[in-house]
Design a protein around this nucleic acid. Sequence first.
DNA 1: AGTTCGATTCACT
DNA 2: GTGAATCGAACTG
Length: 198
Amino acid sequence: MAIRPLARRELSIDTAALARFLIGKIVVRELPEGIVSGRIVETEAYVVGDAAGHGYRGMTQRNRSLFLEPGHAYVYVAYGISNMLNVSSGNAGTGTGVLIRALEPLEGIGIMQQNRGTERLRDLTRGPGRLAAALRIDRSLDGLDLCRKGPLWLAHDDHEPGKIGKSIRIGITKDADRLLRFYLRGSPFVSGTKALNV
DNA sequence: AGTTCGATTCACT
DNA sequence: GTGAATCGAACTG
């Protein structure tokens, strides 16, 4: 079953709809050692007028990629250690995006194990910082167009995702009660506590 | 120029 | 379940 790049016109202009749409799609990372890929099982939307969003206070040096056309990478460092992968959303000039929070590993599991320093399949890409480490994603990929093949891109195949759940987002303090987190129900590769994943 | 604060993770108990 | 580590970027003065 072939995988192909996501077309930009398939990406909803609505950030929450895009976050839901991305569940079941594939993140592809091309490394010198080979291809690493995983299926998206958890996302969060950071929408217009959202105090938790990095674009909320306007463009800065760090977040400028959020304001690109939909489907570009916004990569930033959280807590000084973990890289976070986001997909820019909304029309150009809109500082909104979708955080990719967890993947189900598909290809290149050996490379991921090396990048993560663990063998445990379930720990490779469960959590935004972990998946970025597994796919060796850092700020050098910030601003990349994810809708065309390259070092990092988004793909889809004929896979139909199962039921998608919705919850509050993880790890934020502002606008913390909005239901903007989406996840694949029953997936062992989703992060967060049991109560969030019903 | 100094301070504050995380869109987290890991190692414990 | 709880707590410490960790550092770059944004914000304040």
